[in-house]
Design a protein around this nucleic acid. Structure first.
Length: 424
RNA sequence: GUGGGUAUAGCUCAGUUGGUUAGAGCGCCAGGUUGUGGCCCUGGAGGUCAUGGGUUCGAUUCCCAUUAUUCACCCCA
């Protein structure tokens, strides 16, 4: 059997590339409008970065990383997400001494060893933003509003914004004590994962999907009801500012996020029509992450958007994406002399930004015309002995079939000076 | 890691109640008078019917395994 692309990876073919170019360019555009600059980070990092940054107790680190030893025995991991790498770069390049805040965006692939399903692949694409050095609620709102504007520009409707606050380490410690108190009697009756979480990260028990566990948790205290005053004020301010600019949201007390670094505000944009993996975008604040990774205490907030899911959503909403431009002109030729002339002509046109396709197969005129038609060329022109002798060629409009004889001396000037729609 | 569906040409799919040359449409290539596309007509290329075993006189068809794919669980983008 011929070699296939590895499980969970996909080719993005020329026929689809315009969709990708379109959403990429639009994203860069919006980010720059908010003052964010692009950063590019390595595909692989030291495994330790993700263990520390993403968190040892997370599913990502425990079972989903592509980890291998390089030839010098270093443990290397393909990035399962972008934030850890960006934060590493921020620290490594001393960005804390840049004017604050530091605003970054990126467009990356990420890798997770998971079983594939709709909207989930082993190699997938993320657009992300990281805003470092700003702790004010206005920062949270800025990051969310980037997404809001982006979706608006793409014409995506009805993505639901869900918000929660999971507090700071202090109020979370307080809450974990409270939760463990609540759970102490019933934990014996819950699933194995929950039992492990009871000691390592009790908060995530709230997120358990086991029916049996869920029933026991109905009356469990919600974190949002027990965050400290500062966190509470922060969250209220975020909500107030969102309302001020008219971004609708819903509070979802169950959003916990699967990554350990989140603090305070967490959010996601969810779709209901792209399968069960409906989270198009997830993000939140991570005020302790930079310090945990060995940098100065620095607040941060960001998000990652799943591009495959974004495209699924756009498709399900029937959003049209501009096609890549068709060739302006096809230049055919018959015979050696004409082939030489067509070489020169095509070269001149291409140097002047005209999309020009020429014959390089030496085929019959009929075959060349068919080809020009399939390419969707706006005009065609065939060179042969007659054209060389008379110094004239017939320019043909491929849309309506009209033709006009044009002197070869004036042809190039005519095509360069005028818009393609005015060539005839 | 777990469970279900699927696997026939580049694509979308027929088909064989197990019988020897496996089909269509689209696409691709070439022709339909000498140098002009789109419609139409003709011809051609392209498949060890996912792979490996088993049952059988005989398997693409039945059985098993493997792999891939797809959907779902867990979890996440």
């Amino acid at each position: 059997m011929p070699i296939q692309a590895p499980k969970g990876t996909r080719d993005i073919l020329p026929e689809d590339i315009n969709q990708w170019n379109f959403v990429e360019e639009e994203f860069s555009d919006i980010c720059r409008r908010f003052g964010y600059n692009e950063i590019r980070i390595p595909v692989f990092e030291h495994t330790e970065l993700f263990q520390r940054g993403v968190g040892d107790t997370t599913d990502i680190v425990q079972k989903e990383m592509y980890t291998f030893e390089d030839k010098a025995g270093r443990s290397i991991t393909l990035r399962p997400e972008g934030t850890a790498g960006v934060v590493r770069s921020y620290i490594e390049h001393g960005m804390s001494s840049l004017p604050q805040p530091v605003k970054l965006f990126y467009q990356i692939t990420a890798y997770r060893y998971e079983n594939v399903q709709k909207g989930r692949y082993r190699e997938f694409h993320q657009f992300g933003v990281e805003l470092l050095g700003a702790s004010d609620p206005a920062a949270d709102v800025e990051v969310i509003s980037i997404l809001s504007l982006y979706f608006e520009k793409l014409g995506i409707k009805n993505l639901k914004l869900n918000l929660n606050s999971i507090g700071c380490p202090e109020c979370r410690a307080e809450y974990n004590r409270l939760l463990k108190g609540f759970l102490s009697d019933i934990i014996v009756d819950m699933c194995d994962t929950c039992k492990t979480r009871y000691d390592r990260n009790p908060m995530r028990i709230i997120d358990c999907k086991e029916e049996h566990c869920k029933k026991q948790l109905v009356n469990a205290p919600a974190l949002l009801d027990h965050i400290c005053d500062d966190c509470s004020k922060h969250f209220d301010s975020v909500l107030q500012k969102l309302e001020a600019i008219g971004i609708p949201y819903a509070i979802d007390k169950n959003i916990v996020r699967g990554l350990d670094y989140y603090t305070r505000t967490v959010f996601e944009f969810v779709s209901e029509n792209i399968g069960t993996q409906g989270t198009v975008c997830g993000g939140g604040r991570y005020d302790g992450l930079v310090e945990d990774c060995g940098g100065p205490p620095t607040p941060g907030i960001g998000f990652a958007l799943g591009v495959e899911r974004l495209l699924l959503e756009m498709e399900s909403q029937g959003i049209k994406i501009p096609k890549q431009p068709a060739p302006d002109i096809y230049i055919g030729s018959i015979g050696e002399k004409a082939a030489l002339a067509s070489e020169k002509l095509a070269w001149q046109l291409r140097r002047n930004n005209i999309i020009c396709i020429k014959d390089i197969m030496g085929r019959s005129v009929k075959a060349q015309m068919k080809y020009a038609d399939k390419l969707g060329a706006r005009y065609s022109l065939i060179l042969g002995d007659t054209e060389i002798e008379t110094n004239k060629a017939r320019l043909k409009d491929m849309v309506n079939g009209e033709t006009k004889d044009i002197s070869l001396d004036t042809l190039i000037g005519r095509l360069i000076k005028n818009k393609a729609s005015e060539w005839l």
